[in-house]
Design a protein around this nucleic acid. Sequence first.
DNA 1: TTGCCACTTCAAGTGAACTTGAGGTCAAGC
DNA 2: GCTTGACCTCAAGTTCACTTGAAGTGGCAA
Lengths: 150, 150
Amino acid sequence: MSYLDIAEVARHSGLPASTLRFYEERRLIKSVGRRGLRRLFDASVLRQLALIALARAGGFALDEIAGMFAPDGRARIDRGQMRAKADELDRTIRRLKAMQAGLRHVAACPAPSHLECPQFVRMMRLAGAGRLKPPVESAKTGSKGKRRRR
Amino acid sequence: MSYLDIAEVARHSGLPASTLRFYEERRLIKSVGRRGLRRLFDASVLRQLALIALARAGGFALDEIAGMFAPDGRARIDRGQMRAKADELDRTIRRLKAMQAGLRHVAACPAPSHLECPQFVRMMRLAGAGRLKPPVESAKTGSKGKRRRR
DNA sequence: TTGCCACTTCAAGTGAACTTGAGGTCAAGC
DNA sequence: GCTTGACCTCAAGTTCACTTGAAGTGGCAA
């Protein structure tokens, strides 16, 4: 009775329907049936999508996340993997804090070039001590970055 | 005298030469000259690469980072932008902390399905309260994820 | 019964950040 | 003087996570 069609799931989750179809194809979620052509989802898919969002935020790739769900849709989670990710996240958070301090410094410090401000350089050294690849970017918080010259 | 060729910069920075060329093309760094065909970099490029890594970690796109360097290679930074990023980072850190708590919980909680553990669900709600897109993934910390069926 | 249109599939496209490959060059060592 | 091989350029390929577009379908209101 409490089945949701894709539009409702989209509305509740904030994800576009195309993404939901994509997630289903990648076996991150599954629909429980059809009404005609249309997918029907159990309401529990919303919690599952929340878990997926959480995992994505934690740095798991979609394939890894797919591996976390047993065929019945229940979470089947490798505790060691979780701990490892948590530790990694810990390091990431530390670096991000350093980065943040760096940014706030730059926003305040009047030095002409921050590369020459010893305080900034020190912070950078702290932040950079352990490399880090890609960024966390909040949903659609500005920074369109669309151009690509040449 | 203290000019570095690309291999030395690669060695010191940990970045492949291809990435350094790519960064130069994208105007994130520049070489100070050539010896024959070969690029020569000033040693200061290493600090600049550290700054770039920092900015990447902070969620800046390469184009944004390129915009932070004045033509002379000095940092030219928009303080408002910095503050905005710092605030964003703050939210990100908060979410990552929630995520981390969730992970540690999952690693410890004996519940059969975490989707049914009220504590976990509560944490998820906290963590997910404000969407978040892509992950922070540490350098090459395992998780090869290479396959792609179909 | 008809027609709308939100859904469907499948293939292809996008953007970010690189990586790879083919073919070329040149400083240095033999 | 020749060879070697690490560098060079430029184009194309790759991965991830989606998005877009064309063409089709079927439940439901009129």
